[in-house]
């Protein structure tokens, strides 16, 4: 059995999760401290991909990077290549779709964190960088990890936007979800079932990890 779709899904999702993680926590950190109106506008903008059908996200991405777009033209001119229909095109699709999950969970964790603790760090002459990495993030660990796992899981299952920007090319862009769709469309149910089972197994492992982390995040809690 060819395991390329598994490997491809994992690498796309992992790379996208790393990007989403940093993008999500930094933007959440800045948005939380913005004044009312600007905060509302950016918040809406960053959350929209969550409520849009992934095909709409895919369409917008294609408008930006397809060979017909300005960026696509430049790439074709200088590298004689395209950005779409490549496995890494799917990374962009997955980042766009998973970003709101990371952003929103990080934002609500940051908002729930006692602002006096941040303020006390400042009056104690600790740098803002130290406060962010060593105080804010560790104390928001529960929310951040939940967001991270959700983003990764959602990325693994991404279909709509991925199939539009990366398509289904065996051994090149095939992911688990596009493979399941392909086998079903071509009446190879037996093959499809295998991938369905693999998908189920991965989901179970992810949920287990979430549960384990949820129990371990309180500092100094006994028992």
């Amino acid at each position: 059995m060819d395991l390329f779709p598994l490997w491809n899904s994992l690498r796309i999702s992992l790379i996208a999760t790393v990007i989403t993680f940093f993008l999500g926590i930094f933007l959440a950190y800045y948005v939380v401290r913005l004044p009312g109106l600007l905060k509302g506008i950016l918040d809406t903008l960053f959350t929209i991909p969550m409520v849009l059908p992934p095909t709409v996200a895919g369409f917008v991405i294609l408008k930006l990077i397809s060979p017909k777009s300005r960026l696509g033209e430049l790439v074709r001119k200088y590298f004689d290549s395209t950005l779409t229909m490549k496995w890494y095109a799917a990374i962009l699709a997955v980042v766009v779709v998973t970003f709101p999950l990371m952003y929103r969970t990080a934002r609500s964790s940051f908002e729930a964190f006692d602002p006096d603790i941040i303020a006390s760090g400042k009056t104690l002459c600790l740098s803002n960088t130290y406060i962010f990495w060593r105080i804010l993030l560790p104390n928001c660990k529960a929310g951040i990890i939940a967001g991270l796992v959700l983003a990764f899981a959602r990325g693994l299952g991404e279909y709509g936007a991925t199939s539009m920007v990366a398509g289904y090319i065996p051994h090149k862009t095939a992911t688990i979800s596009t493979t399941v769709a392909y086998f079903w469309q071509t009446n190879q149910d037996e093959q499809a079932v295998k991938w369905v089972l693999i998908n189920l197994a991965i989901s179970c492992v992810i949920m287990l990890i979430v549960n384990v982390f949820e129990k371990r995040v309180s500092y100094g809690k006994e028992g």
Binding site: D114, D116, I117, A119, S120, G121, T123, I135, P138, N139, K141, Y219, G220
Partner: peptide
């Protein structure tokens, strides 16, 4: 500055 509820860093 001593805060009313001390504002110790909970993770340390």
């Amino acid at each position: 500055y001593m805060f009313q509820d001390y504002a110790l860093f909970p993770n340390m």
